[in-house]
């Protein structure tokens, strides 16, 4: 069954029917927002059933649109949390990516600014590596990017998309060895992005991220994880009662090859490890349960089929 990421927007009236429908069809609800009278669902649904969901949603004036980034967690790396970079451009980019379904976390480096003095510490590196992709928001000068980026990419093993002031070609030329994606003309600026050409730039960022993630998905498809992360989320949600008491917007964040469970590692790692998925296979057998460097959360990295020889 081929699950595709979609966003459903509709009224609150009878929205539970849509949720039931998606679940009955074998899809998963990744995130549910209720904003006054409106409901936004981010979900993975079987590709062939999209037309059916759209038809059932029509009398409820619900709309279903593809959103390529649902089910991914993206780090937006900003050079500092000073007024020089916030709220524009860092928040503008982070918020815009969110509209396409991604869960974005902003990683503000403690000492990411400057040319010679830029640094990244081990905690920042590890936190970035816990994501599916990192978007680096760099400055306007190519001299600075050329020198500092080498320091900022050290030890990062997730795909990187670089945004900077110089043109895409320049970024491509000065960054050696190459990274996975480049977006030019999105450097440091101090005004809100609201004009159409600026929004087009943000669309370009999303396109580049989508392109890089699609490539990563293809790679993953060659040796898929032993269980779909969305399914694992569903299992944990039904079996761990305490997850319903977590106030975070996404108590379980779905990634492409794993999950971030927002429960304390010390208390719940064993509980999660021992959960049975089906026919006596536990989560511990097919995934690594490790402490996340983000607070005291649990990070689940699902092992690929080639390692476990199990597919559930």
């Amino acid at each position: 069954m081929n699950l595709v990421p979609v966003t459903y927007k509709g009224g609150i009236y009878r929205h539970d029917e849509i949720i039931d429908l998606i679940e009955d069809l074998g899809g998963y609800i990744i995130q549910k927002h209720i904003l006054a009278q409106e409901v936004v669902l981010q979900a993975l649904v079987p590709k062939e059933d999209i037309a059916l969901i759209a038809a059932i949603a029509k009398p409820l004036t619900g709309e279903i649109t593809p959103s390529p980034l649902v089910g991914t967690e993206i780090a937006v790396v900003t050079m500092s949390l000073e007024i020089h970079h916030l709220p524009h451009a860092s928040c503008d980019v982070a918020e815009y990516i969110r509209r396409f379904g991604a869960k974005t976390n902003m990683v503000g480096l403690a000492r990411g600014f400057g040319k010679r003095i830029a640094q990244m510490n081990d905690e920042e590196r590890d936190v970035i590596n816990e994501h599916d992709l990192a978007v680096y928001l760099l400055g306007d000068f190519e001299t600075c990017i050329k020198q500092k980026f080498q320091v900022l990419r050290r030890g990062i093993d997730v795909p990187i998309v670089v945004c900077g002031g110089p043109s895409r070609e320049t970024l491509r030329r000065i960054i050696e060895p190459p990274v996975d994606g480049y977006v030019g003309n999105v450097g440091r600026f101090m005004h809100r992005t609201k004009e159409s050409e600026e929004l087009a730039k943000l669309d370009e960022v999303v396109e580049e991220i989508t392109r890089v993630l699609d490539r990563k998905r293809e790679e993953i498809a060659k040796d898929p994880p032993s269980v779909s992360p969305a399914r694992l989320m569903d299992i944990i949600t039904t079996q761990v009662e305490e997850i319903h008491e977590v106030l975070s917007p996404t108590p379980i964040t779905v990634q492409m090859q794993g999950l971030r469970v927002k429960l304390p590692y010390d208390t719940f790692a064993r509980v999660v490890r021992d959960i049975s998925i089906e026919e006596g296979i536990t989560i511990g057998e097919i995934a690594d349960i490790i402490p996340s460097r983000m607070r005291d959360y649990i990070l689940i990295r699902i092992r690929p089929f080639s390692e476990t020889n199990i597919m559930v």
């Binding site: 306007d140 000068f141 190519e142 002031g165 043109s167 320049t170 440091r188 600026f189």
Partner: peptide, 9 residues
């Protein structure tokens, strides 16, 4: 390019 951005900033 950098100069133009800084003019706007």
């Amino acid at each position: 390019t950098g100069g133009n951005y800084y003019r706007r900033i």
